[in-house]
Design a protein around this nucleic acid. Sequence first.
DNA 1: CTCGCTGCAAAAAATTTGCACATTG
DNA 2: CAATGTGCAAATTTTTTGCAGCGAG
Lengths: 141, 141
Amino acid sequence: MPEVQDSIRVLRARGYKVTQPRKQVLKVLAEAEKPVSPYDIQKILQEKGQHLNHVTIYRILDLFCLLDLAHRILLLGGFVKCTLGDKEGCHRFMVCRHCGGLQEFADKALCEEENEIAQDLGFCAEHHFSEFFGVCSKCHG
Amino acid sequence: MPEVQDSIRVLRARGYKVTQPRKQVLKVLAEAEKPVSPYDIQKILQEKGQHLNHVTIYRILDLFCLLDLAHRILLLGGFVKCTLGDKEGCHRFMVCRHCGGLQEFADKALCEEENEIAQDLGFCAEHHFSEFFGVCSKCHG
DNA sequence: CTCGCTGCAAAAAATTTGCACATTG
DNA sequence: CAATGTGCAAATTTTTTGCAGCGAG
């Protein structure tokens, strides 16, 4: 699981401690197929015989989102591990309404077009948050 | 307030009853400058000497979102009245991080570009949800 | 060793459910 | 008056706060 190692490196590099709870949450996120809520995470850990206080999980997720190690999926109401690292352009998601799976992507050209649209309306856009709803390749015949 | 009348027409046309509570919530939404939560709405009505049960407000907002008479702003966590009617293209928002105000817009060309991006990734996008964060014209000097 | 992090207890806030009663068309 | 919608009570779920004590660096 190289992804988890990358995240751990980010934590260390930014001066945050690499604690047992943080590693546990990272692992759950990395293994999850779909967005998970704080209580989902607690339950998953419990099934492995591990216990984390839910408050701790909330705080860890806050931190991960701050560092872009995870993202909150607003349409589905859960958290996912970031799969793009620091790829340029805002990180976005395509959510499959059939299987509930999602794919993260970034597209710098799209960001630029959005900035222009915003500018035409007198708005200076600093971040584009977006999620597409539809059907993924596995789910449409 | 022509907007409220339009919404009332939509309700009637779709076979929903035009009740006192629904009209009250519509009015609050129409007069609000920023997204309002169910409890915000209850409080605003209370200040006018009116009372609605919060459960009723939840249900009314659910209906309004279903009919696209209102939208839930995910970044800020509240509801706003739709200002675009049935304008073509997904309805989106620009949120000002300074004043908290927002502007709704739709752009068919943007929808099409997003569909192409999705298609390139094997995804069939049916709806694009997006919110831009930035600074509005009033707030940047 | 010491600062940052976690656990715990508790409260506050947000959301949901079922059923009896009221209101709209 | 018949179906829809609302109010109420209560439970559940989600999120936040403050403080004491633990543990990574």
